[in-house]
């Protein structure tokens, strides 16, 4: 199974290393042809303004939307979350708009406000996730179909999931936190090879024909 990492700019090497560590073959994605045959995709941290321009310049928007609409899971971290959001507060138009949330860029301030904190992520089990937040965004509005995956103590939302789309404001790839990548790999495996009997039960990462 191969999972792509958008490699136009940002911390894509770190994500590729995490995938390799859990036994998944990572693929650098710079051009549409790189997306062929992928079971899932990671949109890494980086500068979202630079990444959005490179995505459009090299025609990656439509094929990535096709991949997501076909049910392949996508994980976005930090800038990746911004690229996934349907709405960016006081900012540019959305890039992929796959996640029904409003995000605010640099929501905590500048680099001097970047921080680390342990946060509870119930879907990943009892031990907390060590969150590294670098000029991080925040989720300001959560749409009806979106599940909140993690909050800070003050209730601000920092990780969300909507069907096959998963996004974090922090950087699991910088903290050696593998559980998000394992979750993505599990979702990707279910998508790529649902197995016998899959047609008879609702599938967590696959859109039904009616809703597609």
């Amino acid at each position: 199974m191969r999972i792509g990492v958008l490699a136009v700019q940002g911390a894509f090497v770190e994500h590729a290393r995490m995938l390799r560590a859990i036994g998944v073959e990572p693929v650098d994605v710079r051009l549409p042809a790189d997306l062929v045959g992928l079971a899932g995709l990671i949109l890494p941290g980086g500068e979202s303004t630079a990444m959005r321009r490179l995505v459009d310049r090299w025609g990656l928007r439509a094929p990535i939307l096709d991949l997501a609409r076909g049910g392949a899971p996508i994980l976005g971290t930090c800038a990746g979350m911004i690229l996934l959001a349907a709405d960016i507060a006081d900012g540019d138009p959305p890039v992929f708009g796959l996640l029904d949330v409003t995000v605010r860029r640099n929501a905590f301030g500048r680099q001097l406000d970047s921080f680390e904190a342990d946060i509870a992520v119930p879907i990943l089990g009892d031990s907390p996730v060590h969150g590294i937040f670098i000029r991080a965004p925040i989720v300001e509005r959560v749409g009806p179909g979106v599940a909140v995956v993690a909050c800070l103590d003050d209730g601000r939302v920092v990780a969300v999931r909507e069907r096959n789309i998963l996004a974090t404001a922090f950087h699991p790839e910088l903290a050696g936190e593998m559980r998000f990548h394992r979750l993505l790999a599990t979702m990707a495996a279910e998508h790529a090879d649902p197995g016998e009997g899959a047609g008879r039960r609702p599938h967590p990462t696959r859109r039904s024909v009616a809703s597609a």
Partner: peptide, 22 residues
């Protein structure tokens, strides 16, 4: 929730986010 700012990971991490860029 203990919050730590300006750690080595956040300092070095910003540069990691700039990789592949100009």
């Amino acid at each position: 929730m203990a919050v730590e700012t300006s750690t080595w990971a956040t300092k070095k991490g910003l540069a990691q986010m700039l990789k592949g860029g100009v």
